[in-house]
Design a binder for these strands. Sequence first.
RNA 1: CGGGGAGUGGCGCAGUCUGGUAGCGCAUUCGACUGGGGGUCGAAAGGUCGGAGGUUCAAAUCCUCUCUCCCCGACCA
Length: 440
Amino acid sequence: MRLTEFFMPTLKENPNEAQIVSHRFMLRAGMIRQSSAGIYSWLPLGHRVLKKIEQIVREEQDRAGAQELLMPTIQPAEIWRESGRYDDYGKEMLRITDRHDRDMLYGPTNEELITEIFRDSVRSYRDLPKMLYHIQWKFRDEVRPRFGIMRGREFLMKDCYSFDLDYDGARRAYNRMFVAYLRTFQRLGLKAIPMAADPGPIGGDMSHEFMILAETGESEVACHINLLDLDIDLMGLDPKGDMQSTVDSLTSYYAATDEKRDPAIEAGLGDDLTVARGIEVGHIFYFGTKYSVAMNAYVNNEKGDKVAIEMGSYGIGVSRLVGGIIEASHDDDGIIWPEAVAPFDAGIINLRSGDEKCDAASEEIYLKLGNAGKDALIDDRDQRGGVKFADMDLIGLPWQIIVGPRGLENGVVELKSRASGEREEMSIDAALNKLTGSVG
RNA sequence: CGGGGAGUGGCGCAGUCUGGUAGCGCAUUCGACUGGGGGUCGAAAGGUCGGAGGUUCAAAUCCUCUCUCCCCGACCA
């Protein structure tokens, strides 16, 4: 992509409404624009990141054995009356009336809808287990949206639902998602810590929130320091296994969100305790037969008995992750994208657009990177170096290739790592080689 | 929903107390010079001062109502 053609309206100054880092950088880098409180448009740069995160989440869901479907954003009130949540949900639910005066709503979550779909089609234990997920926009009419995309009213979420015949099956599904989440966050370049969360009315130990630690986190969390550097080989695990030992080893350490913290345990941990602020990026929980009973979702088991389906739900805040990653990875100059989610693999800074040699060298690098399957953004604007450096640092691409007349005289360009700030002079071929793993 | 703050060119702000017909920086357009970390000079374009009503010879400025946004708290993926 050429910057002269790309729609990326960057801002030099901090917009007044943005207080936290991720919000400021997302606005300044031209990733998003606010439409109204808690509702945003995703501009091309932000949209690229969102899609990359979404794709990684999707791949790990598929790998865990879940199947993707897509449910609508608008739901009928009817099914929510059936589950009893229509009145419970309160003002956070955006209620709509259609032209026939039928009560509708913009879905804040999808338990009712998925349960309806499932119960209407499944009668036998032979159809279980199943895991179904979708990645869809949700709406919760928060009283006070804040932190930009991190706590908007409209947000993109992956939610998965598991259907099992019995508790053991539900536990297996839970474990699989538990591990899938760890893998997902690992691939996103994040350290997400699973923490015991409030399981709600069902009780038990099957409710975890996945938190990334950042100063701007919304709540205070605590965990054993070993969890901070735990290195488990998730990639080698059999995705179809029960994973109980992996989950056990991870949950053996103390880790608790705000409402689950235990002062007695924490006192006993002494120096092994870390207290920090956390951003919730995922939440998994088992809720048993809460919805299946309320909404009449039963199957016949092998003996012909009618049993309520055991369910669990598993959410990842996809749009929130964009902000979360920035909170966890930035410096004073801007964003520092992990390679897996960066909107482009590399940025090429042509320090003298219009200069024959600089243009030729920049174009060569751009084309060869493209041929090697690398997505590059080339700054071909007629701007001064300082402007280009600042914008490139702001948008945080992992690598910068700096092409200037001074270097070209000696046959070199500079390769800069955004994360470390290190710059190295080398030939064009060497730079290409380093970025693509083969000689351009 | 309680408490606080703010709406003035695209962005950041001054002007409001003490009414006199709108200004600064950045960005934008054109020209020239410049060229390795947000340049210089010259010219230009762009605002019914959130909206409605009122007071007044005269309102960004005073009064009333209203909308929106931000921050703290309660609440939440």
